[in-house]
Nucleic acid binder design. Structure first.
Length: 245
DNA sequence: CAGATCACCTGCTTGC
DNA sequence: TGCAAGCAGGTGATCT
């Protein structure tokens, strides 16, 4: 906040979604205002627009770290260097003059939504609950790991039609989503292969996964093997006994 | 309008 | 050892 971007370098056309010239021109010389997060999206307010960052699957932001093979963007600020790394380049690092439509369309943040609204919105959806939790226009901020972990914690089968969840079961799911996100944040997230925080520290929450990535191992609740299916094109892990259909 | 199917990228693990 | 297939934290376009 209050820092100036002295220089901007973009090493990947892809993370700027094409217009890397506009990104460099827009960022160079800009003064940084508030930094906000909406779901998985990071918004850096600038005096002349905004920097939109989405880490995708393999993105990370490092403060005062050396650049590397997968560095896609570098911002030299008046008090340090911000490095954006992204192996797969599914993330974004873009300058906009105004708030883009895809941000306007993002759903309520998982940690700010209230239960009444969550339940109301659930009732209008008849598809399976798991893909709905990943739908960022429905609720933003929940990813594949946390959807599976929250559904297990609430003992809800991922195939359950959203509108068939009773109020108490929906309330339990709501509570578990928030609880798991907050615990995961406290543990700096889940490092499956390369996730690190801004200090370069890996997360520790992967040690607390009870279903995600644990296909075939014994369920912590009943001992039956954890099952993996594909639901909504995403690997989905659950216990067939503890999370009955 | 919801659901399915690819596509976008690179790397790691597994199995033959 | 080598090589192909499958998998991975997330969207986004297009077709049915």
């Amino acid at each position: 906040m209050g820092q100036t971007i002295l220089s901007a370098h973009v090493a990947s056309v892809r993370v700027t979604r094409g217009d890397w010239v506009a990104t460099i021109q827009g960022l160079t010389g800009a003064r940084i205002g508030a930094v906000e997060r909406h779901g998985k999206q990071i918004l850096v307010r600038l005096d002349r627009g905004l920097l939109y960052i989405h880490l995708g699957m393999t993105g990370n932001l490092l403060w005062n770290a050396p650049s590397g093979k997968y560095t896609r963007a570098i911002l030299e600020l008046s008090n340090g260097v911000l490095i954006y790394n992204d192996i797969r380049q599914f993330g974004r690092f873009e300058f906009y003059r105004e708030l883009p439509a895809n941000l306007v369309g993002v759903g309520p943040d998982a940690l700010q939504l209230d239960f009444a609204e969550f339940f109301l919105r659930l009732k209008s959806r008849k598809g399976p609950i798991k893909p709905l939790l990943l739908n960022q226009t429905f609720i933003s901020g929940v990813g594949n790991i946390y959807a599976d972990e929250a559904l297990f914690a609430a003992r809800i089968n991922p195939h359950t039609p959203a509108n068939r969840l009773s109020r108490p079961r929906a309330a339990k799911l709501f509570e578990k989503i928030r609880e798991i996100l907050q615990i995961a944040i406290r543990h700096r997230g889940s490092s499956i292969s390369n996730h690190v925080d801004a200090c370069g520290e890996p997360g520790a929450f992967q040690q607390m996964h009870v279903v995600y990535g644990r296909m075939g191992s014994a369920c912590s609740g009943c001992g039956k093997p954890i099952r993996r299916v594909v639901l909504g094109q995403r690997g989905t892990h659950y216990c067939p006994r503890c999370q009955r259909a």
